[in-house]
């Protein structure tokens, strides 16, 4: 019973963090057609900045989370304004720009901290016990925070003016511009939001798992899988495929060990992609 419960909550935590990061990735692709290969690196840098604030500066966890998010969001806006906006949507140049950002971030982290892995101290100490199961407060807090953030994002996208504008641009870019939506402003918000979401996932998973300069590569893979299975243009799809992938990657290792379980997941993903190239909920992308 305890094992079952812990597996469930484990997979829910992973899922919620994957979904947060994948949503950030999807915003950028759906709106701007940027296949953000730097998303993993931004996720990683979020984790390290959080570590710096919490461990080196001794800040309160939640304050550090807020500051990191704001900082990375500002970084995202900076990238949009001075790099991506100038490329005018050229796909190849965008890819090169993403690699540029990723290389800069990864090299910087490599030089400053090197290869050693470290962990952010957990957000809450202690264990929550009931008659049936026991679960650490850290897991509960992470899970609750992930759930809260997901709710906030869904509210933002569906209820606020700028969120609706983002959806409009994602559905029909030219039409939205003709309607008088300021695409630059909305793109800046999308970048800020996309990067901020990656950074939040980075901090929480940096506390829940570990920090390493290469954690971004793994995350990027997961994010791309979630995004492709959900399909371009779909937000609901990401919630569902994120949940599926989170569950698979925490349940499968119980049965199959190590790299083989990852290979099985990839094989499943490829098969689904071949059967439904447009993903479960999206549309086929022609470029």
């Amino acid at each position: 019973m305890g094992l079952l419960f812990n597996t469930v909550i484990n997979s829910l935590i992973l899922s919620s963090m994957y979904i947060l990061a994948a949503l950030g990735f999807a915003f950028l692709f759906n709106m701007l057609r940027i296949f953000n290969l730097a998303h993993g690196a931004i996720y990683m840098i979020g984790g390290y900045i959080g570590y710096y604030f919490i461990v080196e500066l001794g800040m309160n966890h939640w304050l550090a989370l807020l500051l990191t998010t704001l900082l990375v969001a500002a970084f995202g806006m900076f990238l949009e304004r001075f790099l991506f906006r100038r490329l005018k949507g050229d796909f190849n140049l965008n890819i090169m720009a993403c690699v540029f950002v990723a290389v800069i971030l990864q090299t910087t982290v490599n030089i400053i901290v090197g290869d050693k892995t470290m962990a952010i101290p957990s957000f809450a100490e202690g264990v929550f016990r009931t008659a049936l199961f026991s679960v650490s407060y850290e897991r509960l807090v992470t899970f609750a925070a992930g759930l809260f953030l997901l709710g906030a994002i869904i509210w933002f996208v569906n209820k606020t003016r700028i969120g609706l504008q983002m959806q409009a641009i994602a559905q029909h870019r030219d039409g939205a511009i003709l309607q008088g939506i300021d695409i630059n402003r909305v793109s800046a918000v999308a970048f800020a939001l996309g990067c901020a979401l990656a950074a939040i996932a980075g901090i929480f998973l940096g506390a829940y798992l570990r920090l390493s300069p290469y954690m971004g590569d793994l995350m990027l893979t997961k994010v791309v899988i979630i995004f492709m299975l959900a399909g371009a243009g779909s937000i609901t799809g990401i919630l569902i495929t994120g949940l599926i992938l989170g569950t698979l990657s925490s349940v499968l290792p119980v049965f199959i060990s190590g790299a083989a379980s990852d290979a099985v997941i990839i094989a499943i993903v490829i098969i689904i992609l071949l059967i439904r190239p447009q993903g479960f909920f999206g549309y086929q992308v022609e470029m």
């Binding site: 492709m228 992609l273 071949l274 086929q284 992308v285």
Partner: peptide
């Protein structure tokens, strides 16, 4: 049967 981005990502997964 995959094209453009779908082909690229499919091969990425491979």
């Amino acid at each position: 049967r995959l094209r453009s981005l779908h082909y690229a990502v499919g091969s990425l997964f491979f």
